[in-house]
Design a protein around this nucleic acid. Structure first.
Length: 995
RNA sequence: GCUCAGAUGGUGGAACUGGUAGACACGCAGGACUUAAAAUCCUGUGCCCGUUAAAGGCGUGCGGGUUCGAUUCCCGCUCUGAGUACCA
């Protein structure tokens, strides 16, 4: 029988499902291997061809590892909480759970069609209560924990309470809010329970904090930064204001150092690690206090936050070059430190700053602006009085919201000083500050008191020592990363398992989990601007109000890989045994867009779960591969822009009306093929020719009656054509199927095509894949035409996995032909299955063992595109050899199985093997003996240019090879009687002669 | 600005540690089969010069360098894509 991919694929997909072929066991004598894909958000649009790229790669890897004798865990699930479903619910009133369910069904159908070897018995959905029960449970553990810096790990809040009770706050080294109380044990005990809880909240790993959000009153909701454009909501264009709100936060900053260090232990793409490093943003420097004059002893040393300005600097060595200090306009001391004379200026400046969005403030790096407060601060090391300014280039949220300005070393400070005429003091002997700041660390210090003559390293150490001595500063490490906001004012997310009593948050008890998402009448905020959950009736905890915000999208995805290990467990998020067996993810494949979101939060939660003893590995994803994005590839047709004009005035003649009344209704649409377009643009004659053609061919009969009444002139517009997107499904290899095109839309029904040789060539552009550009390609269509095996192999054949590339089907025929050719090896000319048991020849064995090694090497380095090519080469070779030997073909079936599982299963059974055993067959063993050659066609080159090839026995050593080459008459002809100065022979590679 | 990735025929791409640049596939051209078409098969296909062939020249973004030999290593530059940012 011919290769009937439809029957074959359906048959085996059913077989795998009924027999649970890919169900993984949590116990095995085999080594474990966990292959994970980033699970999808089930959107209403379904899967497009970009989605499966990573899934196909991971499936090939998973299937390969099974053949290599591993116990493979390869699961799939859905990140099913999220905004689009909620948006849809708001529009249609349908419960998001229902639309989500529908979308999942579509995804599942599409995924099943591609033939993935997922263990569906472990499927997870983040929106399902038996899943989010555990997301809530982890939240509770975070609430019940604090970060002990001495132990460098999270601990139960009980250990903190015990410490407070016995020793007070003394000796606690914790990651906490900035302002915590200092107290003795007795003082602690004297606090009311509420006061104690209030204090403990400052230590918990998830806590309430007032944070600024983008509040859109009209939409009644909080918007993400990228949903805000120039101070207005992207959707609807309503004004957005900065509003302070009590929000749940996650103390991820406690893990900053461990998150940074951990990167060195995992096998991830370097750019991705770099992104996380930048996001964490560790900078090593010092904090320095600039005292306020008149506040007492100078230089200053006091506990009260109001009589000094604290700055963070990475260049504490430049402290003698400080000529002013700048505060962020939002800094809390600004009002207090502004003198009456400067009050008006400063307030005007603050108002001006407030008008600017954060984006504007960041974008405008050219204009220098600021205002003098009228106050001075004192340099702690030389007592010098320096001006205190405010300026919007200093951000309140970073460091301390204040900087010490060193105009000789920092370009921003330099411009500021020049603009406001502030002093600039050079501090390093080799510094050149004529036209710009010079941030050099080379050279020796000048104008710098006790560090004069020193070099960078010793100077830094000396300054820090001095600062510590006078109590005005110390070495400090600063991180850019902030705590993550964890609350969302949305409906379709996990409810936070917290209720409020006396304005304090309390956890519900564990046995009351899951806290189910309540039903609401509408998915909108309330009139008073409370989140949708406030609409739920009778939703309270023994009369106390529940938290009304829900968890963000990343909550459910920050631990889901553990649930796959033990998806059905009712008593734990996963059993200890399951976690100890599977441990971590060996291979994780997904897009790099999750670099600083999902991948950072997951590492954070993982480290926390390890601290509390629930998981065993410090890092969750040992190896990670980013698959590139599949971009859309749009096609264009070019519609001629022309008009007809009457050349004379005729009474009561309106061309438009006459056209409408005529048989043709309107002027025909004429499309110009891309290859004709150049001629038209460059060649006037062509245009005249076309005009004549239009008149004579396209318009002739239709306009005859009109022409009898008035003379018409045809004008082609200056911009000859307008480019229109055309559905890529109507185009094959840039050639338009114009019959289909005519039926695509009513208005094209009578279209004309101008082309060379009857082929209409379309234009191409790479853009985002989107409906409006008609460039979305659905895997279903490809599978319908070519089958899943072709789709799988073609997606791999497209190019390196990590590279972004536009989707195009130009080469898909080649892959399909390859599979047919493979099928043909097992069949005779009458399409009857025909395999021989003869012993294979040397040439056949060579082909086989070449491919065994090649595919092994390629898969191990995730180079799937090259192995597809190699399969083609192997099948071409075996076809040429007319090989139908079982000994060769059966091995081929095993090697190809990860790539094209359906056709291989079918052939496996035709070869007489038991159905379903292929997935666990043994991968063929490579034997290098079959590849040994006794001769090699050496390229013979003269001065590095290859001239000819020469077969030379590999048994010859370097010297004999050289002699063999020089004895050759053809070589002599090339040498033209000259003796080479030097002959380089690389055995088995090349011979090069220098003349 | 900074960080990272990339640039190879008409197209997607290959060339792993410096050793025959362009594998494999698409497309295109020619041919076979066919009444014809589709399908299939065969041949050719980097560019230039050359009637064919031979021979030759040029070729991996650009300019240099190291080397017997560079797509690969080094220096400088251009462009494209991604991330990130008045980060002190």
């Amino acid at each position: 029988m011919d290769y009937q991919f439809k029957d074959i694929e359906k048959k085996w997909q059913q077989f795998w499902a009924t027999n649970q072929t890919f169900k993984a066991d949590n116990q095995s004598s085999k080594p474990k291997y966990f292959v994970l894909d980033m699970f999808p958000y089930p959107s209403g649009a379904g899967l497009h061809v970009g989605h499966p790229l990573g899934y196909i790669a991971s499936d090939i890897f998973a299937r390969y590892k099974r053949l290599k004798g591993f116990n493979v865990l390869h699961p799939m699930g859905y990140d099913s909480f999220g905004l689009p479903a909620e948006q849809y619910a708001i529009q249609t009133g349908q419960h998001p759970a229902i639309t989500t369910e529908d979308n999942i069904a579509t995804y599942r159908r599409q995924l099943d069609q591609i033939g993935f070897s997922f263990d569906w018995s472990r499927e997870v959905r983040t929106s399902s209560p038996d899943y989010y029960k555990w997301t809530q449970w982890i939240f509770m553990q975070l609430f019940n924990s604090w970060y002990n810096k001495d132990a460098d790990k999270a601990e139960s809040i009980a250990t903190l309470v015990a410490h407070f009770e016995s020793k007070g706050s003394k000796g606690i080294n914790a990651v906490s809010d900035e302002e915590v109380l200092t107290f003795t044990a007795d003082e602690w005990k004297a606090l009311s329970s509420e006061e104690q809880q209030q204090e403990l909240l400052k230590y918990r790993l998830t806590y309430l904090r007032e944070s600024t959000v983008n509040w859109c009153a009209a939409l009644g909701t909080v918007l993400a930064n990228d949903e805000v454009k120039d101070g207005f909501s992207e959707r609807g264009g309503y004004p957005v204001e900065q509003k302070k709100m009590m929000q749940w936060s996650m103390r991820i900053t406690a893990y900053a150092e461990r998150l940074l260090q951990g990167l060195d232990t995992i096998d991830w793409p370097e750019p991705l690690k770099e992104m996380q490093r930048n996001w964490i943003g560790k900078s090593v420097g010092a904090s320095v206090r600039f005292g306020l004059p008149g506040a007492g002893n100078e230089p200053h040393n006091t506990q009260h936050a109001t009589d000094y300005i604290e700055v963070f600097t990475t260049r504490v060595d430049t402290i003698f070059g400080v000529t002013f200090v700048v505060l962020a306009p939002e800094h809390e001391l600004v009002a207090q430190l502004t003198t009456p004379e400067q009050k008006a200026t400063v307030e005007a400046y603050i108002t001006q700053t407030k008008k600017k969005s954060e984006l504007d403030r960041m974008a405008d790096t050219k204009t220098v602006s600021g205002a003098f407060t009228g106050s001075y601060v004192l340099n702690p090391l030389n007592g010098e009085k320096i001006q205190l300014w405010i300026a919007d280039y200093v951000l309140a949220g970073y460091g301390t919201g204040a900087v010490m300005a060193v105009p000789s070393g920092d370009q921003r400070d330099y411009l500021f000083a020049k603009h406001f005429n502030l002093p600039i003091i050079p501090i390093i002997d080799i510094q050149n500050i004529e036209t710009e700041a010079d941030p050099t660390k080379e050279g020796k210090y000048i104008n710098s008191d006790f560090i004069n003559g020193l070099e960078y390293k010793e100077a830094t150490a000396a300054v820090i020592a001095k600062l510590e001595e006078v109590g005005a500063g110390k070495a400090r490490v600063n991180f850019r990363m902030r705590d993550a906001i964890f609350g969302r004012q949305r409906y379709w997310g996990e409810p936070v398992p917290v209720y409020f009593k006396d304005n304090l948050p309390h956890l519900i008890s564990e046995n009351e989990l899951p806290l189910l998402l309540p039903e609401v009448d509408k998915y909108l905020p309330t009139e008073s601007g409370e989140p949708p959950l406030a609409r739920a009736t009778d939703w309270n905890y023994n009369g106390f109000e529940y938290e009304l915000s829900t968890m963000p999208g990343w909550a459910g995805s920050s631990w889901y890989w553990y649930r796959y290990m033990d998806a059905q467990n009712n008593t734990e998020f996963a059993s200890k045994e399951a976690i100890e067996y599977w441990k971590d993810v060996d291979l994780y494949i997904g897009g790099s867009e999750h670099a600083t979101g999902h991948l950072l939060y997951s590492r954070f939660w993982n480290k926390f779960l390890k601290d509390i003893g629930k998981v065993v590995e410090e890092e969750p994803f040992k190896k990670l591969i980013n698959q590139g994005m599949i971009q859309g590839r749009s096609n264009f047709v070019y519609r001629l822009t022309f008009e007809l004009e009457p050349t004379e005035y005729v009474q009561n003649f309106d061309l438009e009306e006459e056209l409408k009344a005529s048989a043709i209704r309107s002027l025909p649409m004429i499309f110009i093929s891309l290859d004709n377009l150049d001629d038209l643009n460059n060649n006037v004659e062509e245009r005249v020719l076309l005009e004549n053609n239009i008149n004579n061919i396209y318009l002739k009969e239709e306009l005859e009656t009109l022409r009898m009444r008035v003379k018409l002139n045809l004008n082609i517009h200056n911009k000859i054509v307008s480019d229109l997107h055309v559905d890529v499904n109507l185009v094959n290899n840039e050639t338009l199927d114009w019959e289909k095109f005519k039926t695509w839309r009513k208005e094209y029904e009578n279209a004309f095509f101008v082309s060379k040789g009857g082929k209409y060539i379309c234009g191409v552009e790479v853009e985002k894949m989107s409906k409006s550009k008609f460039n979305v390609v659905n895997p279903d269509d490809i599978i319908e035409r070519y089958g899943a095996d072709t789709l799988r192999m073609y997606e791999m054949f497209l190019g390196p996995l990590e590279q972004s590339k536009p989707w195009n089907t130009n080469g898909i025929e080649g892959v399909f032909k390859f599979l047919r050719k493979f099928w043909r090896l097992f069949h005779n000319d009458a399409w009857e299955f025909n395999v021989s048991d003869e012993a294979p020849t040397k040439a056949e064995l060579k082909s086989l063992h070449k491919i065994i090694r090649k595919v092994e090497e390629d898969i191990e380095r995730f180079s799937f595109n090259t192995s597809v090519s190699s399969f083609m080469i192997a099948v071409n070779e075996l076809t040429d050899l007319k090989c139908n030997k079982r000994a060769i073909l059966q091995e081929m079936v095993i090697i190809l199985e990860p790539y094209a599982p359906h056709i291989c299963e079918e052939l496996w059974v035709l070869l007489g093997n038991e159905a379903g055993t292929l997935s666990y067959a043994a991968y063929p063993k490579f034997n290098p003996e079959y590849l040994v050659e006794d001769e090699f066609a050496y390229p013979i080159s003269i001065n590095g240019k290859t001239k000819m090839n020469l077969n030379i026995p590999l048994s010859l050593d370097v010297k004999d090879t050289e002699a063999f080459v020089l004895a050759n008459t053809d070589v002599q002809r090339y040498l033209d009687g000259k003796t080479p100065k030097k002959v380089i022979v690389v055995k088995g590679r090349i011979v090069n002669m220098v003349v």
